[in-house]
Design a protein around this nucleic acid. Sequence first.
DNA 1: TAAGTATAATTGTACATACAATTGAATCAG
DNA 2: CTGATTCAATTGTATGTACAATTATACTTA
Lengths: 365, 365
Amino acid sequence: MIIDRNSPVPQYFQLQTWLREQIEQGVFKPEDKIPTEEELVQITGLARATIRQAIGNLVNMGYLTRKRRLGTFVTRRTNLSNHRNIIGVLVPDIRSGYTPELARGVEDAAANNKLSTILCNTDDLFIKAAFHTERLIESNVCGVIFVPTAASDEKNLQIVDKFHKRDIPVVLADRVIPDTDVDYVTTDNFNGGYQLTSYLINKGHRKIGITLSTLFSTERQRYEGYRQALADAGITPESGWIKLHDGPFTEKHYQEVSKTLLSEDRKISAIFAGHDRIAYVIYSVAQKIGIKIPVDLSIVGYDDLHPTCSHLISLTTMHQPIYEMGQESLKILVSKINGDSRGLKRLELKSNLVERNSVVRLKNS
Amino acid sequence: MIIDRNSPVPQYFQLQTWLREQIEQGVFKPEDKIPTEEELVQITGLARATIRQAIGNLVNMGYLTRKRRLGTFVTRRTNLSNHRNIIGVLVPDIRSGYTPELARGVEDAAANNKLSTILCNTDDLFIKAAFHTERLIESNVCGVIFVPTAASDEKNLQIVDKFHKRDIPVVLADRVIPDTDVDYVTTDNFNGGYQLTSYLINKGHRKIGITLSTLFSTERQRYEGYRQALADAGITPESGWIKLHDGPFTEKHYQEVSKTLLSEDRKISAIFAGHDRIAYVIYSVAQKIGIKIPVDLSIVGYDDLHPTCSHLISLTTMHQPIYEMGQESLKILVSKINGDSRGLKRLELKSNLVERNSVVRLKNS
DNA sequence: TAAGTATAATTGTACATACAATTGAATCAG
DNA sequence: CTGATTCAATTGTATGTACAATTATACTTA
């Protein structure tokens, strides 16, 4: 019997489900005529209105087509092009830093899952992220990968909530929003900062400068790692070594910082740059001033941007698995899109130090 | 009276039309509650089943949302995303060369036109381009910006035709497909090659090497410019100076080329690299061998990739307005989407030589 | 043969009725 | 004040009936 009248599931829905299964299993093939409404009344014992309700839904869903006088037929292609297959990717700026690598990781994994990616640049601004958020929702994306902006955690959470209200899952990439239950994929920035600093200490450096932005969870964690490593080595950092700021990355800012760090009677022998692009600026300023790296000054970066780091300036840096980060973010997103909601999905990938030629060993200082 | 019972148009449809008009004219605003089914029975005199049919259709069409016990409400956005507002962007690899800059130019201009961009990486392979083409068509994009692949013109044209068959306009960016009527935005590569070569000649260089790939229209044109400049200066290039190949860019290949060019008893005093990334490879190989740039060897590139060129290795190169190229491509695409088909739309942007510190003046050789 | 016409099958429209399920809000109990 | 319970409004499900509209097919007529 097709219909169970004692079941709590509506009878029209039982019929609808049964019909859909027949179609999907090929019992009713494309172009086939299904039983007439009157016949289905005979078969199921339901009223014709109920039959019509079931069929009407399937017509709306694209499974069936009604033809007056002729009957109801299985639609040729089960073309449900409204089936959502686009995700949004909100990144700071596709031109800079690790973003291209991240975007490519996401895109490759997305293509494997038959998803397309809409790319949006936030320039680390809340307002742009909010703008793109509206557009992505309008475009009916089925999921979002979001690199939080330079705005407050609260603001970034607003963005996430806008998607969540529409039942659009979100995965954060690289940066996280602390003390919330938003899923993310990031790397072990604290360990990375710790390792890089320890590396410099092992090379005999004790006066180690650092400069980065406090706006981003990643850089803050690297800074924490730096402090811990110094503390564990019994070194108390002087305030002059540390140049934090609460703005986004600009070349101009770090040029100023570099001049200060490199001029102040050169108290420091090494600099930990918050990320590679900062290191580049320091590098170029040092070049202009005539400070030679690594002979006169040691420097380490963070990211390992290709090909500049590896081929041109030979920077010792912390390699982040950015491409993998993109891929893993997407995998988690897909599992959420598919309704797998078993607890939080968070991932912290391992970075590894790449030793090149920007750090010199100091003689026992 | 809302319903005309003598009209041949079904009464549920009259009600449906009336409700839709109220919504579209803002009488019922988003989030508003419309009259309950019972109230509509009173208002219209129709049976509740008929009311439900009208409402049910509007729910299916996205205008209304039913909430049990609460009533029926106007959907937040009357947008069913059938209005196509997504374009596709087919680029070689978002990670490399000028691609990020191009993508950003497209994206910014697209956002201004309320369009979203789906990004696809072809890796310069026809097969990947074809794969993404199918997906973009499925995603119902309303236009495409396409950087032709390393495949033959014929193959690239196949890609374009696939879109054109679906009435999806295409604009080529950077590279062109010669002898066809596909619109494009590119730069004056011939002039650029001519200028760069002339620049080297003016600096006293006569034995000028060149290496690039012949797969791409841009690089071929630069090569033509190079030959013309040499010819105009009365210089006949020797075969040993010229290292063309018909494969895509790989570091490995150009490392080999560099070794050859830099070893062969150093016949040449300057190298014209087909683009900046090639210049980087030559740079790094030269560094390893101990050849100093520009003292021992002059080198020019093409693209002016930021920030490496400008800050780190100080490469004299041809600056291409890549960002603008992205923007202009999109503008043309938009005009085509809007049905403006007044003739061909082609644009050749001007490049300009950026003189830095990778070329030395030779004493009268 | 060609054009018009009747027929019957099937979906389309319309109405009246009844009870179920859900849930915001009011009420009550502790 | 908090938590449980009840109430009532509204949509959801289901049935039975009736007639309309459409149209492939067969039949009729000029």
